[in-house]
Structure formats: structure tokens, C-alpha cells
Computed example of a mutant assay.
Amino acid sequence: MRVRHELARRSRVSDSELSALEHLVREPMGPAELARLLEVSTAASTGVVDRLQTKGHVQREPHAEDRRRTVVTLTDSGRAEILGHLMPMFEALRALDADLDDTERAVVARYLRGAAAAFETVTGPPPAPRSTA
């Protein structure tokens, strides 16, 4: 949670806006779908999208198959904003990984799989990936 709050602070976005950006990094989606993922009302989701659009981090586009709907997409600016703040952490993790031999890496992987399973005793399994077909 500290990384999330610090990233939001440095990016000058709210926690909800950061969460929206995290979802939009994975794939574009409609405001109603984003509202469900953020667990907020569609009106609140619209406000999040409005603020992110004002900052140049997202844009609304017409839905490819249903012109009555819109799709929210992450802009290059939005992606650069988030990755720019995360890159030092990614580089440090890459360097740490490079210092491990295969045996050490296997132990770390086993530990992390076990830790994820332990978290799932509280949260349940992660949601299945959605079909794009």
C-alpha cells in the first residue's frame, strides 16, 4: 500500500485515479466497467475519468461496435507518468534478480508462490482472465 500511495502522490492523482490507471494499463474499457472494478458508482467513475482526461492520462473513444458507448484508453502520457515513477523500482528488482543464481531464484519463486497462496486464504483466488473474443 505504501508504494501505491507514494505513486499516487508523485503522480498527483488520487488513489482511485491510480487504480483506474492500473486497470487501463491492462486494457481499454468502458466507464461502467471501470466503475465495477473500482467499486464506485458510474457517476464517481465518470468523475475519475474526467480528472484523468483533464491531466492528459486517458482519452475517451467511440466503442468500435456500439457507437452509443465510449471506451476509455490510456494515453502515452498516462503510461509514461506511471512507468516513469515505477522504473527505478523495476530496475532495482531487475538488478536484484540478476544477482541470484538459479538455485536462489527457485527458492524465492517457491516462497512467493506460497505467500500468494497464503494471501488467497483471505482474499480468495484471483479472478479468471476475461475472454476478449
Results as ranks from 00 to 15, higher is better:
84 G>A: 08
67 R>H: 11
115 A>Y: 15
127 P>W: 07
123 T>G: 13
105 R>Y: 04
103 T>C: 05
71 V>P: 04
105 R>M: 07
55 K>T: 05
65 E>N: 14
133 A>V: 09
46 T>C: 04
101 D>N: 13
57 H>L: 12
68 R>V: 10
6 E>K: 07
42 T>P: 07
22 E>S: 09
3 V>C: 06
121 T>N: 08
44 A>W: 02
58 V>Y: 00
80 A>C: 05
133 A>C: 07
98 A>Y: 09
121 T>R: 14
85 H>K: 08
93 L>T: 06
33 E>C: 02
74 L>D: 03
23 H>Y: 14
102 D>Q: 11
29 M>S: 02
75 T>W: 01
11 S>Y: 06
20 A>H: 01
68 R>E: 13
18 L>T: 02
124 G>S: 07
34 L>Q: 01
16 S>Q: 14
85 H>M: 00
54 T>V: 14
63 H>I: 03
128 A>P: 00
14 S>P: 05
41 S>T: 15
127 P>T: 06
124 G>K: 07
5 H>P: 06
46 T>P: 06
11 S>N: 01
53 Q>P: 04
82 I>H: 04
57 H>V: 00
114 G>R: 10
15 D>G: 08
89 M>K: 11
114 G>H: 09
107 V>F: 09
91 E>I: 09
30 G>K: 01
51 R>W: 06
133 A>W: 11
59 Q>S: 13
68 R>L: 12
47 G>T: 02
50 D>Y: 10
5 H>Y: 12
43 A>H: 14
88 P>E: 03
86 L>E: 01
84 G>F: 08
80 A>T: 08
61 E>V: 15
66 D>G: 00
84 G>Q: 07
64 A>Q: 08
113 R>G: 09
69 R>H: 11
36 R>Q: 14
2 R>K: 14
1 M>E: 04
47 G>D: 00
22 E>R: 09
82 I>T: 01
25 V>D: 06
9 R>C: 01
36 R>N: 15
125 P>E: 15
102 D>I: 02
40 V>K: 05
7 L>G: 04
111 Y>D: 09
65 E>I: 11
2 R>M: 12
126 P>Y: 01
63 H>P: 06
28 P>F: 02
112 L>D: 05
12 R>H: 11
90 F>K: 14
85 H>R: 11
32 A>E: 08
90 F>G: 06
129 P>W: 10
122 V>A: 13
93 L>E: 09
97 D>C: 11
64 A>T: 04
21 L>R: 01
22 E>W: 05
55 K>V: 04
37 L>F: 05
33 E>L: 00
107 V>I: 13
49 V>C: 03
